[in-house]
């Protein structure tokens, strides 16, 4: 049963069309990922769904409620974790959580009990009486997530949950998201980390320039790419000038040479490795390693959208 239905959603900022008539639905208990590069329309979409922005046209239904007409009813059952850690710097962790709980009408005893429980769950008990502004980035992110779930929402919206934090904190946050899924929460997540989406999401939608270009499970999205087979050979010496000979001998294969001492054998059919090894051996070229290359979600994204999710800086860092 769909708990979220978005139909023909559009958002115009003046002349600029940030979201161009997107439609999708999310099942109860599902983790749904909206993936796209910066400026693709992810935050605009999430903002319209949580009531921080008004759609230019289209419909949003959340748990049977019209989210455009009755956004305050929707806000009671959703939890929002924004892309920025927007808690109050001058308040300590415990007070921040209690304050956020009070916005949902939770009584003092109930919110204090829940705040203690969440601080413990997020490994922040010792930092509970420290001012939020003194927290590390990872701690701030964890407390922001705790604040988003303090009222035990049915549906959770996470905007770039692990952006800009250390590896260990990111791992803890991913674990937590999976735990929330186990508890039956419906989770809507936007990210530009493909590996993260692949690990967490039941279904993924690719958004580029305000349009959803593909929706499916990770397996469904991979199907297009897995139509072919790819093997990378690590060679003892260069095979420069042998590309043609290889392709002539193994007519269903295409050969690519990413660098001097390696080559990629690509074929639509499963590749018989032994004849290739024998051929190379006969030419005096040793093969040290043969590795099957499986396509990543990033390959799928690049193939479908013709654009990469990573910024130039991120690619250099990688």
């Amino acid at each position: 049963m769909s708990i979220i239905n978005v139909t023909n959603l559009r958002k115009l900022y003046g002349e600029f069309e940030a979201v161009k008539g997107i439609s999708f639905s999310i099942e109860q208990g599902e983790v749904f990922g909206l993936l796209g590069p910066n400026g693709a329309g992810k935050t605009s979409t999430i903002n319209m769904m949580i009531g921080l922005s008004r759609p230019t046209s289209g419909h949003i239904r959340i748990d049977g409620i019209d989210a455009i007409k009755d956004i305050k009813k929707v806000q009671k059952i959703i939890g929002v974790i924004p892309d920025e850690n927007n808690l109050y710097g001058e308040m300590d962790g415990f007070d921040n959580l209690c304050f956020c709980a009070s916005l949902y009408g939770m009584r003092k005893a109930e919110r204090e009990k829940r705040a203690i429980q969440l601080l413990e769950q997020f490994d922040l008990t010792k930092a509970g009486n420290r001012l939020f502004k003194t927290y590390s980035k990872g701690m701030k992110r964890k407390l922001t997530i705790a604040a988003g779930i303090i009222h035990n929402p049915k549906i959770l919206f996470l905007d770039e949950p692990t952006t800009g934090i250390d590896v260990e904190s990111a791992r803890q946050i991913r674990e937590l998201i999976l735990n929330l899924k186990k508890q039956g929460k419906t989770i809507f997540i936007t990210t530009h980390y493909l590996e993260e989406a692949q690990r967490l999401c039941d279904r993924i939608a690719f958004i580029v320039n305000g349009k959803i270009v593909k929706i499916g499970t990770v397996d469904e999205l991979m199907e297009d790419m897995e139509a072919g087979h790819k093997i990378k050979l690590q060679l003892g010496s260069s095979i420069k000038g042998m590309k043609e000979a290889l392709e002539n001998n193994f007519s269903d294969c295409r050969v690519e040479m990413p660098d001097e001492n390696s080559c990629l054998i690509i074929s639509k059919e499963p590749i018989a490795l032994y004849p290739i090894l024998e051929f190379l051996n006969s030419k005096g070229i040793s093969v040290y390693e043969a590795k099957q290359i499986k396509p990543s979600l990033e390959d799928v994204f690049v193939k479908i959208t013709g654009t990469s999710l990573k910024t130039k800086k991120e690619r250099v860092e990688k």
Binding site: G51, K72, K76, V80, N86, L87, L103, Y104, G105
Partner: peptide
Amino acid sequence: RGRSFDRLLIAPIS
């Protein structure tokens, strides 16, 4: 500016 005001706008209060 710190976007903490967004918390109030997305809370279920008028």
